[in-house]
Design a protein around this nucleic acid. Structure first.
Length: 502
RNA sequence: UCCUCGAUAGCUCAAUUGGUAGAGCGAGCGGCUGUUAACCGCUAGGUUGCUGGUUCGAGUCCAGCUCGAGGAGCCA
């Protein structure tokens, strides 16, 4: 009789049945007569019990010496047991060793960033990385289904783009049969053409920025989805963006509870984002930055950080006492580890504490007409529980194709969407200038040559309509939803300044 | 491009005013029937990132370089 192979995530439906699982050894605690194996099969992890019995001494001995990440096929009976993680475990009858692994580099203990990134191809198997990847999958799937369900047509825009002379430092140049072209940093201009064909269109692909940014928010290669709609207005664009983010969040809350729990994400923060978003004009945002509210917020933040630092210092005292009183070596080591972790947190907090007065100055002295800086965005987003749309920025700091507000030509009809908790800008979008002559004017004012925009200008010559759209950065969205600090963990193989391996 | 910090065993870290390089984890061997980063005992494991300098003596001090982390600017 063939024994059925089941997924660990389906264990609850197979209690007391004999089944097979195909997977990998994640960790093991071997005893003389019983071994506790933590197995993973891609769907989940479970504990498996191998008891030494008459007749299985060979298997017992072999499994005992199996290295972490050895691949195996285990046959056994599913049991409900509260002592086991997930509430179920596998009582093993037999193990087939598919591949024996020795010296797997990533152990269940702590590792540094550099080491993990060098071993990224293996790091992907770790629990947190596994959870992040699954949430990313759900986010991308939500994006596709949201647009598909709302009658958008997917149009793929080119990655090789002619260089038109603008913003050259931020583009990657490629030798294209002797011609200098750039890797695309947006599909928007091409997508405008598609929107005039389909009414609603979107593109979804990788995008490339050669900015020399080394921060936790930047990648040189990242994924962006860009919808573009004919006959829309700015309110419509904001509704579209809010609908998209609501769909993403509610799908993650519905389908990725376990993964969010693995990442210790505060669910209430995500639930708050299901409320209608805050709408602030740029001018209102500037007022907010100048307000007592912003000042008080930063003062509170400063006080909180200082309190936390004192708390950590007290903890360190305690750990030191623990270490002195500890009889066992491992207790001393544990205390040392805790002290190290606390010191790292203190260092980070002290840096923030140092920066807060500077941020206060920046906010207080913010002049109408400048683009919002990173710290300004943080202040605005931290003052609200849900994402914030900031609209109508000064025309001078924004791109040439953005349409000026007919009611105030000093500002353009654009939006930025700021994610909560300081995760920064996740959406940028605008209405596009649809008037032929006005667009030429804008191109010339920015110092560009209208000759290079011939086909783009054609869109204003033949059946031009009010239209607009936005771009949403997938990795920043994943960082926010998962609550992880650094964007490099939101994509399987991050590309950053100076890093292209593996 | 600029500013700050860092590089010691496979991994994470320690090493007092410059004076014999250590621990835990991991690996190997052994012990333990309910473990949750299991635990206990033993063993192996090092050109202290590179180059030069100061010194009787450098992991430690100085200079330059390489690599990494965080931030500024810019941005999704």
């Amino acid at each position: 009789m063939d024994i059925k192979t089941v997924k660990i995530s389906d264990f609850s439906q197979h209690v007391d049945q004999q089944i097979k699982i195909k997977g990998w050894l994640y960790n093991s605690r071997a005893g003389g007569k019983v071994q506790f194996l933590v197995l993973r099969d891609g769907s989940a992890m479970c504990q498996a019990i191998l008891e030494k019995k008459e007749g299985n001494e060979d298997i017992f001995g072999q499994v005992k010496h199996l290295g972490q990440e050895s691949s195996i096929i285990a046959t056994g009976t599913v049991r409900a047991d509260d002592r086991s993680m997930g509430g179920f475990e596998l009582a093993i009858d037999d193990v087939e060793i598919v591949h024996e692994t020795n010296d797997y580099p990533i152990t269940p203990k702590q590792h540094g960033v550099e080491f993990l990134m060098k071993n990224r191809h293996l790091h992907l198997r770790s629990k947190k990385q596994w959870a992040i990847a699954r949430i990313r999958h759900t986010i991308i799937n939500s994006i596709r289904s949201y647009f598909n369900d709302n009658e958008f047509i997917l149009v793929d825009t080119p990655i090789f783009s002619p260089s038109v002379g603008e913003e050259e430092q931020t583009l990657f140049n490629v030798d294209y049969f002797g011609e200098n072209v750039a890797l695309s940093q947006t599909g928007q201009l091409y997508l405008e053409a598609a929107a005039l064909s389909h009414g609603k269109a979107y593109c979804f692909g990788p995008t490339f920025r050669a900015e020399k940014s080394k921060t936790r928010r930047h990648l040189t290669e990242f994924w962006m989805v860009e919808p573009e709609v004919a006959f829309i207005d700015l309110e419509g664009i904001m509704d579209l963006g809010q609908g998209l983010i609501h769909t993403i969040i509610s799908n993650c809350l519905k389908d990725r509870r376990d993964e969010l729990e693995i990442l210790e994400r505060d669910i209430s923060k995500l639930e708050a984002a299901l409320k209608p978003f805050v709408h602030l004009s740029y001018s209102e945002a500037v007022e907010l930055l100048h307000s007592e509210k912003a000042k008080n917020h930063l003062e509170n933040k400063l006080a909180q950080k200082n309190t936390r630092i004192e708390e950590l210092k007290d903890n360190i005292e305690q750990y030191n006492t623990d270490a002195t009183n500890a009889k066992k070596q491992w207790q001393k080591d544990k205390a040392a580890q805790q002290i190290q972790t606390a010191n790292e947190e203190i260092a980070e907090l002290q840096k923030e504490v140092e920066n807060i007065p500077h941020h206060m100055e920046l906010a207080k002295n913010f002049k109408w007409g400048k683009d919002l800086g990173g710290s300004d965005e943080s202040i605005i987003s931290e003052l609200h529980d849900q994402p914030v749309f900031v609209h109508r920025y000064p025309r001078e700091v924004k791109a040439f194709y953005m349409k000026p507000d007919p009611e105030n030509p000093d500002v353009v009809l654009n939006i930025d969407c700021l994610a909560p908790e300081g995760y920064g800008e996740i959406i940028g979008g605008s209405m596009r200038e649809e008037d032929y002559n006005a667009l030429i004017q804008r191109i010339e004012n920015k110092g560009f040559d209208p000759e290079n925009y011939k086909w783009y200008l054609d869109l204003r010559k033949y059946g031009s309509v009010p239209h607009g759209g936005f771009g949403l950065g997938v990795e920043r969205t994943v960082a926010w939803v998962t609550g992880i600090k650094h964007i490099r963990e939101t994509i399987a193989y991050p590309r950053m300044m100076g890093k292209v391996y593996p």
